[in-house]
Amino acid sequence: MIYESGEIMHKTSEIESEISKKSKYKNLYFHYGGDILHKKIQPAYLKMLLDFDKICKENNIFYLITAGTLLGAVREHGWIPWDDDIDILVWHNDFKKIGIAIEKSGMSDKYQYIHPENSSIVTVDGKFMSKNVSLGSLMGDMGIGHPLYMDILPIENVPDNKVFREIKSLFSRVLMLSYNSLRCLKENDELLDIMSRDSIELRNNLRIRRFAAIPARLLGQKRTFKLLQFVNSYPSKNTKAVSVPLGVKMYKGEIVSRSVFAQSTSLSFEGHLFPGPIGYKEYLSNRYGNDYMTPPPKNEQGIKCFQKRADWKKIYLDDRRKRCEK
């Protein structure tokens, strides 16, 4: 069976979410609902987006809001009620420039840029990360940790030759699955490994993930990502189509016509104007389906926000010691 990277990653997260609610593990996570999301987290992210917009304008970096942020701007003129992040696109050549732009704009005391090639964490996204604001600081509990960050992905050219395109898509999908599966190795997520002892479903899921991670483990995290970048990139700027190959639908699923991202159009988001793709209708139809303007059913609109606490291990060991003393 061939597992799509996005599907299997989503499945792992869904299983973790359910187990994290059990009494044995719930103190190791920070769960939050609509009140915290709307009053604290979303406003903090909006401030970050405004600063990012300023940095990009000062440094002539073309960027676009995308994914749930774009959908919110088009459908809600602001946040989707259950959305808890910001998604950004830049052209391939600007993917590494954001760190330099932060320095030039004098905001290095507030933000840093985490590029996947230079990161110890397993991520395909660039991360525009706050140095001062975290879930912990917003909640007055620094043990929660988790600095706020915005996800940034590159737009890549796609060859017109369909056979070449299929080959690139295949290799990109395999590399994405293997690279992302590194997150589930014991050394990268010890708590997942602990929780798998209480869940056959999670245990089986991790077995698949760890088998899939073998190529990336042999190559090494950084070399695998560089190879993934090489596979996804294409030098010609005259192709008919482009893709966001590191996106949730991966290389082939994210392909749209070049005209979609050729220019930006101003879209209202929480009373501010931000650049969205001029062809946002084509993009959103491809990403979410032709009925993207129709919100999902009520039972699918729930806020399922949770984060593993930064101090989870101390809490876990303290709880285990107390149980042993009884």
Rank of each mutant, 00 (worst) to 15 (best):
S199V: 12
S199A: 11
I200V: 13
E201L: 09
E201N: 04
L202H: 12
L202M: 14
L202W: 14
L202P: 10
R203P: 00
R203C: 06
N204D: 12
N204A: 07
N205I: 06
N205T: 06
N205V: 00
N205Y: 00
L206Q: 07
L206E: 06
L206R: 07
R207G: 05
R207N: 05
I208S: 00
I208Y: 06
I208P: 00
R209H: 06
R209W: 00
R210I: 09
R210K: 12
F211D: 12
F211S: 12
A212Q: 05
A212R: 00
A212D: 02
A212F: 01
A212Y: 00
A213G: 02
A213W: 03
A213P: 03
A213F: 03
A213D: 04
I214A: 10
I214N: 06
I214L: 13
P215T: 14
P215S: 14
P215F: 11
A216Q: 04
A216L: 03
A216N: 03
A216I: 03
R217N: 09
R217F: 08
L218Q: 06
L219S: 12
L219P: 03
G220L: 02
G220S: 01
G220A: 04
Q221Y: 05
K222H: 13
K222C: 01
R223S: 05
T224I: 06
T224Y: 00
F225R: 02
F225C: 03
F225K: 03
F225P: 04
K226H: 05
K226S: 07
L227G: 08
L227F: 08
L227R: 09
L227M: 12
L228E: 00
L228N: 01
L228D: 00
L228G: 02
Q229L: 09
Q229K: 11
F230K: 10
V231I: 15
V231G: 03
V231M: 00
V231S: 01
V231A: 02
N232F: 03
N232L: 07
N232K: 10
N232E: 08
S233K: 04
S233G: 08
S233Q: 02
Y234T: 15
P235H: 06
P235A: 10
P235F: 07
P235M: 09
S236P: 10
S236A: 14
K237Q: 15
K237N: 15
N238P: 07
N238C: 13
N238A: 13
T239S: 04
T239F: 04
T239N: 06
T239Q: 07
T239W: 07
K240C: 14
K240W: 10
K240D: 15
K240F: 11
V242H: 11
V242Y: 12
V242S: 13
V242T: 15
S243L: 10
S243W: 13
S243K: 11
S243H: 11
V244G: 02
V244I: 15
P245M: 14
P245A: 15
L246E: 08
L246R: 11
L246Q: 10
L246Y: 09
